[in-house]
Amino acid sequence: MARLRGFWEGSSRNPAKRVQFDRPLTPWLFVLPQLLIVAIFFYWPSVQAVTSSFYLEDPFGFGSTFVGMDNYTDAISSREYRRIAGFTAFFAVMVTALSLSIGLLLAVKADKVIRGASAYKTALIAVYAIAPPVSGLIGMMFFDMHMGPFTEMAAWFGYEMKVGINYNDTAFALILVAVWKQIPYNFIFFLSGLQSVPVSVREAALIDARSGWRRFKDIVLPLLAPTAFFLLIINITYSLFDTFAIIDVMVKDKPANNPMTLVYKVYLDGFKGNDIGGSSAQSVILMVVVAALTVAQFRFLERRVHYG
């Protein structure tokens, strides 16, 4: 967490940690490899995306026509695009809220377990080792229309679940799998955050308040805030970008009427539809939105976070 804070506040507030170099170029030499990586894998492709978003290009690159903002207006004026954007926002909020709260709940409970604690933790963390496409595959089997156990379970209650055909059913399945996959990550961080709350503080709190909920709300939660803030950003990024593989596997490469996120739409138009200009414009829109969101979080939310 200190790293995040240092990055944002600038190192000037921490003069004690400043390292002095004799030559002004030496520090640059040390950061050069990192800068190169950022330049090659982030800035260069970003510039390319921005450039090609203003052109209509034939897939093979024989000719491209400058079309100005057309690709952007085409995307934003498309009903389908707005529908996907709406789902993406809903999906991100649901996945982030559910996986954070369930992760926190499990961590608080695991923190109290004394006997068999490590077995309990291992069982919870193990899921994190599953690769996203594999978890998508597991989800696909669970919700299979012909033999999926969840489909059969829904049938007991008289509900005919049709993941892959019914929009809401597929949305439910996607959120469930995405949350399930992310809980262990949040669990690990919350648990280590909880265990770093000093015992003396807890004991002092115990004298002041009998209510466990009040102790948690007034003492533990504020001390967990830096962890929670970090996880919030990571979870939003996860739900927007890293769920790609889950979606791809669960909609079986044929999205049809199924819900998808904006990243999946970029992929669909760019890599399957070979519409490079349109896909670039969409990815620039996405880049701007995510950057704005992250900056907003740092500006407005981080002020409330106390770094102990």
Partner: peptide
């Protein structure tokens, strides 16, 4: 041209037909 995308549009609409939307 862009026929794979046109197919995607059809697939989307066909799902909507059969789910009654």
């Amino acid at each position: 041209g862009f026929y794979p995308q046109i197919r995607s549009v059809m697939e989307r609409e066909f799902n909507r037909i059969f789910s009654g939307e």
